[in-house]
Amino acid sequence: MNFRLLYFRTMVLRKQWLLLLPALALLAAVLLVPLGRSVLQSFGSPDWTLDHFRALFTDGVTLTVLARTALTALAVTAIAFLLGYPYAYLMTRVGPRMRGILLVVVLVPFWTSVMARNFAWIIILQRGGPVNSFFKLFGLDVVLYESVGGVTVAMSQVLLPFMVLPLFSALGGIDRKLLLAARGLGSHPVVAFWKIYWPLSRGGVVSGMILVFTLSLGFYVTPALVGSPKQSLVAQLLGQRTTQLLDFQGASALGLVVLVVTLVLVAWANRVGGTISAIGTVAAAPAAKDKP
C-alpha cells in the first residue's frame, strides 16, 4: 500500500518537474553556459593561471573601485533603510486608501523610464540646478553631479522600493497587541518598541538591506550617467574592460570576485534573516492550531 502510494506520488512529482523545463532550458542557455565560460576564462583557459586575479589586487585601481563600490552600496542601503523603515511603518498604520496611495508613490520609480529618471537627476544635481542653488543659500558651492554623493542619492531613490516592500510585509505581520501587552507589563512605549517591535521586524530589515545592497553593487547606468568616470564603480570598470580594453579574462576575474562576495553575503543573510523571519511568520499567525 505505502509503496504504491509513494510510487504514485513520485510519478506526480516527476511530471510536475516537467513544468520547470522551459525555464531551466532558458536559464541554462543564457546564464549557466556564459557564466561557466567566464569562470573558465578568468582562470586563463586554456593556459591555467591565477594572474588575472593577482592583477585585480595589484593594479592599484580595482581594489579602490571595489572599496568605493562597497561604500556606496552601504551608504545607499543605510539611506534606504532610514527612509524606508518609517515609511513602511506608516503604511501599516493608515487606512487602506492611504496605504494604496503610499504604495503608488513608492512604486513610481519602478514605472519611470531609467533614462528619464537619470537625466532628471542630472538636471536636479548639476551646477545651477535646484540642489546647487539650495546649498548656495548657505554660502556653500555643492555640486553633486559627477560625484559619488550624487550617485548615492540617485541610487537611493531607485532602490527605495526594494527596502520598503519587504519591510512593509514584515511590519504588517507584527501583532500590535504585543505592544499593548508590553506596555501593560510595565514598558514605556519606547522600550516596548525597542524590545518587542524592533526584534520582530528584523527579518524584513535584513531582506530589504540585502536586496538593496546587492542591487547597488551591480548598478551601471546611474553611476555612468550621474557619476564621474574618475570615480567609477565596479560595474563601469567591468564595462570598460569588456567593451573598450577587450580584456575579457580580467573582466571575468573581476566579475567572479563580485559574484562570490555577493553570494557569500546573501547566504549569510539568509541564515541570519531566515531564522528571524521564521519567528516573524509565527508572530503573524498566533496560535493557528489548538491542541489540548
Binding site: 497587541k177 504585543l178 499593548l180 516573524g280 508572530a283 498566533p286
Partner: peptide, 12 residues
Amino acid sequence: GMLFQNYALFPH
C-alpha cells in the same frame, strides 16, 4: 496584569 484573547506572547 492583562490577558488577551490571542495570548499576546512575545514570539521571539
